[in-house]
Design a protein around this nucleic acid. Structure first.
Lengths: 222, 222
DNA sequence: CAAAAATGTGATAAATATATGAAAAAAAGA
DNA sequence: TCTTTTTTTCATATATTTATCACATTTTTG
């Protein structure tokens, strides 16, 4: 998921970037409207966070131009609430707006909400006839739906988002349980066990990496 | 990895310290800005966690001074979200900020994220068709995956990170086993033996340096 | 060349890591 | 509330890895 942050203040970009990286988004930066247009045209950006007040080419203008290139969601950063009125005046398809000063956490929450709403790619993770369907929130092998518990589902999703990457128990807990999980690391083992049992013929796709963690291993498909 | 905690409240320092030590970071403490500056100038600190509200010299000032000495990442602790506004005013390169009260686990998570980003480690070490893939946590010769034990993997990684450098048993133990290993130096020999056996046609790439240790020798490829 | 020192190697006991079943605890539903 | 499901923890079984030792082999030293 690629996000472009367009703001002339490097400090603000950095703060936002930190938070987005924590959520494993890929982050691009632009310091003015022109740069933003360039980046959008050369990269497959999924969402733009745009400051309105910028030198060179302001946010309104930049959004107009980008809209010509590609239909992607925008989140507007504006210094004060009043400016939001102006946005109405323009017929820009703004998906959300956040006033400065903002809470980065709130921003992230909104991004997620938008992504959920607009995202239509990347909702299927596949390996052969094993399919994890994010929208339907279900996993199938062929036509047969698997009965997974919520944790099993989340865990499998994390694995399928990180194919062929060895994941430590710590990283798994962090990403599937959240940073505030205070329990035993071995909990992961148990869930891997139950997930494997649920995966039928694919039970061995989750490989133990001794001394390290686990890995979702797929055959090279080149 | 050395982290400096700068906060006037000893209680908060202790809590943070506790968690950082668990993660095997080396922890330094300062109770005010001046002390922080001293510590940074005399030690090779990698990251600073700084409280904003402090007597003597406040966090803003301290960060400014430290930035003059050394470019290191900062994480700000501020009492309330509103203070984040102030940070805008200053042109400080803040890498992240956390509002009190905070979860130590979250703090640790952010530190890790920053560390990961600032040092971005190489993920592939190669010699001819011998490849050590850090992400996948595996070693291949051509397409064939080698079955290495964790120690063999770590040892090979250390060798490949130090090509053509003669490594003493002591240095190897220190870096692969850790400073707290109290066993026999000859243990290294045994692991070199098993590693060589696992390396197939590359078994002789690890050369014995008599009276000294071992060396991963590659032909010059210039 | 013989003795001493250093390294190579096979065997193995001890340590460590993972798999798994079952029970306790927590959360979700009715 | 009671029931059911899910999650976590725990104990035990199984598997793997590691460290050490003894002895073989090689190299160096005197």
């Amino acid at each position: 998921m690629k996000i472009l942050i367009c703001d002339d203040e490097v400090l603000i970009r950095n703060v936002i970037k930190e938070y987005l990286l924590l959520e494993h988004y890929e982050v691009y930066e632009a310091s003015d409207g022109e740069e933003a247009i360039n980046i959008v045209s050369n990269n497959n950006i999924d969402l733009v966070i745009m400051d309105i007040m910028m030198p060179k080419m302001d946010g309104y203008q930049a959004i107009k131009e980008i809209k010509k290139i590609k239909a992607i969601p925008f989140i507007i950063l504006s210094a004060r609430g009043e400016e939001f009125d102006k946005l109405y005046g323009f017929d820009l398809g703004i998906d959300d707006y956040v006033t400065k000063p903002f809470s980065p956490k709130e921003l992230v929450a909104r991004i997620k909400a938008i992504m959920k709403r607009t995202q239509n790619e990347d909702v299927l993770y596949k390996y052969e006839d094993l399919v994890l369907d994010v929208l339907a929130h279900e996993v199938r092998i062929g036509n047969k739906k698997l009965e997974l518990t919520p944790k099993e589902y989340d865990l499998l999703k994390y694995f399928m988002q990180n194919k062929n990457i060895a994941l430590s128990r710590e990283a798994i807990l962090m990403n599937v349980w959240g940073y505030d999980f205070y329990g035993d690391e071995r909990t992961v083992d148990t869930h891997v066990k139950t997930l494997r049992n649920s995966l039928g013929k694919y039970r061995d796709i989750i490989v133990t990496v001794r001394g390290m963690g686990y890995k979702f291993v797929v055959k090279e498909t080149n």
